[in-house]
Simulated scan of single mutants.
Amino acid sequence: MTEGNFVDYVKVHLESGKGGKGSIHLHREKFITKGGPDGGDGGRGGHIIIKGNKNLWTLLGYKFQRHFKAGHGEHGAKSRSTGADGQDVYLEVPLGTVIRDADTNEIIMEITNDQEEIILLEGGLGGRGNWHFRTSTNQTPRYAQPGIPGKEADLIFELKVLADVGLVGFPNAGKSTLLSVLTSAQPKIADYEFTTLKPNLGIVEYREFKSFVMADIPGIIEGAAEGKGLGHYFLRHIERNSTLLFLIPADSKDISKEYEILLDELRRYNPELLDKDRLIAISKSDMLDEELMEEMRSELDKDLQGIPYMFISSVAQQGLVELKDRLWEMLNRNVVD
């Protein structure tokens, strides 16, 4: 999927259908000149229904059509005939889609299950025909109910990427390169900050035909929790990841400090993110000799206080098998727990 085709935030206008009118009709046929009321009910207006689809990865379909209107219910007819219900409108979205009220920003619902169907806007009820209003003192009522109007709303569809592993790091830390090496994804790679402007997903193939999903998400900067840089656009995708892989280049001035800055941005955005499993991968380690690597290990063991880390190189293909083993072990532990 190209970056331009990844759409994860859209605003849509929805209208459910109006209910049909109840019928005002008196029964007439040969030899029966004064039959009783037999007006039927109006049909229900069409619903707006949201549906989860595991085969979708983006909200691209809503980039070009943002107004949806369900069908109106048909009016009731004679012989107590009920009008047909209005046509329902089904809106399919990827798993991980959050629906918000565009005015209040309040979360209405989240779609996380495949084929899950939830009515977003109910269609208006059909009016009752005059047959319902007959009484002993009014045997020929000449009135019926109108249909109830449909509902109207402006909503926001916001996709939070559902991935097993989320790559966390500063811009140009090598996240896109790692994803391209571990998976068949082809993210944009260049030697400048914010090359990645949209999340990229890739499937990491593991042993015995097993696999897991890895997401390369736009790089974080200091102040992202307050909306700086790509800010919340980046951070909301981290919420869905089971395991966080912090990627810090070996030529960083202070690996421990860089990790603490990244961790602090996550903490300020949502403290619950710190409950996720974490692993630090020190990238570009092919530039290190064994002596320098041992020296760095002794410092990291002291500074990171038990947080697991490992040295890798995407370009030189070093430590990648061990990285996949470690990630699979962490993911499998989550499943067992």
Results as ranks from 00 to 15, higher is better:
1 M>R: 09
2 T>F: 13
4 G>I: 01
4 G>W: 10
4 G>V: 00
6 F>R: 00
8 D>F: 14
8 D>K: 05
13 H>D: 06
21 K>L: 11
21 K>Y: 15
25 H>Y: 10
26 L>A: 07
31 F>P: 01
34 K>P: 02
36 G>N: 08
36 G>Y: 10
37 P>K: 00
39 G>P: 11
42 G>D: 01
47 H>F: 14
48 I>K: 07
49 I>D: 07
50 I>N: 04
50 I>A: 12
53 N>W: 00
54 K>H: 13
56 L>M: 14
58 T>P: 06
68 F>C: 03
70 A>Y: 00
75 H>P: 13
77 A>D: 12
78 K>Q: 14
81 S>N: 09
83 G>R: 00
85 D>R: 10
86 G>S: 06
87 Q>G: 01
89 V>C: 09
96 G>E: 04
108 I>P: 05
110 E>Q: 15
117 E>R: 15
117 E>S: 14
118 I>A: 10
118 I>S: 14
121 L>W: 02
123 G>W: 11
123 G>I: 07
125 L>P: 04
126 G>T: 03
128 R>V: 03
131 W>G: 02
132 H>A: 13
138 N>D: 13
154 D>S: 12
155 L>V: 05
156 I>H: 07
158 E>D: 08
161 V>E: 02
161 V>C: 01
162 L>Q: 10
163 A>E: 06
163 A>P: 00
166 G>K: 02
175 K>Q: 10
176 S>F: 12
178 L>Y: 03
184 S>Y: 09
185 A>S: 10
186 Q>K: 15
191 D>E: 08
194 F>V: 02
195 T>H: 05
197 L>G: 05
199 P>F: 05
200 N>P: 07
201 L>S: 07
202 G>F: 13
211 S>I: 07
212 F>D: 03
215 A>L: 06
218 P>R: 03
219 G>F: 06
220 I>V: 14
221 I>A: 11
226 E>T: 10
229 G>W: 08
230 L>K: 11
230 L>S: 06
232 H>G: 01
234 F>Q: 14
237 H>V: 02
240 R>D: 04
244 L>M: 12
247 L>A: 01
249 P>Y: 03
252 S>Y: 07
252 S>M: 12
253 K>L: 11
253 K>Q: 11
253 K>W: 02
254 D>T: 02
254 D>P: 03
257 K>D: 07
264 D>N: 15
266 L>Y: 08
266 L>K: 02
272 E>F: 11
274 L>H: 02
276 K>H: 08
285 S>R: 12
291 E>P: 03
292 L>K: 15
295 E>H: 08
299 E>W: 09
302 K>N: 12
306 G>W: 06
311 F>C: 05
312 I>F: 15
316 A>E: 10
317 Q>V: 08
317 Q>I: 09
317 Q>E: 12
318 Q>P: 01
319 G>I: 04
319 G>E: 01
322 E>H: 08
322 E>A: 15
326 R>E: 14
327 L>N: 10
330 M>N: 06
331 L>P: 04
334 N>A: 05
336 V>I: 13
